[in-house]
Simulated assay, not measured.
Amino acid sequence: MNRLIRDARGVTIVEFAIILPAMLTLICGTVEMGHMILARQVLEGAVVDAARKATASMETGEADRRAIMIASITSSMASFPRAPGQAIDIQTRVYADFSSAYPETYTDTNGNNRFDAGEPYVDRNRNGQWDNATAKTGTLGGPGDVVSYTARYPKRLLFGFVGRFVGRANGVLPLSATTVVRNEAVVRS
Rank of each mutant, 00 (worst) to 15 (best):
P174T: 01
L158R: 02
S79D: 09
T12C: 02
Q129G: 04
E119H: 07
A87M: 09
A51G: 15
S99W: 08
I5F: 14
V14F: 07
V147E: 03
T178M: 05
A71G: 15
E104L: 05
N127D: 15
V11M: 12
F161E: 10
V166L: 08
S75C: 07
V14D: 07
E32F: 05
R168L: 14
R52V: 09
C28H: 05
D97P: 00
L20C: 15
A56Y: 01
A169V: 11
K53Y: 05
G141T: 10
T92A: 06
T179V: 12
D108R: 02
R52Q: 13
L173T: 00
F165C: 07
P84D: 14
A22M: 15
S99M: 12
F98Q: 14
A67V: 08
R114W: 02
A169N: 14
Y121W: 14
V187C: 04
K155D: 02
T109C: 04
L140M: 07
F98D: 10
V187I: 09
A78P: 00
V47I: 09
E44D: 12
T30G: 12
D97W: 03
L20A: 15
M36N: 05
D131F: 04
E119D: 13
A87H: 08
I27D: 01
C28K: 05
V14Y: 08
E32G: 01
V122S: 07
M1K: 11
T30M: 11
M36L: 08
V162K: 04
S148V: 08
I5T: 14
L24C: 14
A71R: 13
S100D: 10
M69C: 11
M23G: 11
S148Q: 14
T137Y: 12
F115D: 00
G118I: 06
V94L: 10
A185M: 11
N125K: 13
A8E: 14
I88E: 05
Y106L: 04
D7Y: 11
E119M: 09
Q86Y: 04
F161K: 13
N132A: 10
D64K: 12
A151V: 11
L38N: 12
P84G: 12
Q86R: 14
R168S: 03
T150H: 06
A101F: 08
R164H: 15
V94N: 08
P143F: 01
G167H: 06
T60Q: 00
A54W: 02
A101T: 07
P174H: 02
A56N: 00
G167W: 12
A63Q: 10
Y149A: 00
T92N: 03
P154E: 01
R126C: 06
V31C: 02
F115A: 01
A51S: 15
F98R: 13
F161P: 11
G171L: 12
T12A: 15
G142C: 09
T179F: 04
S79Y: 00
I73N: 04
N112I: 00
I27P: 03
K53S: 04
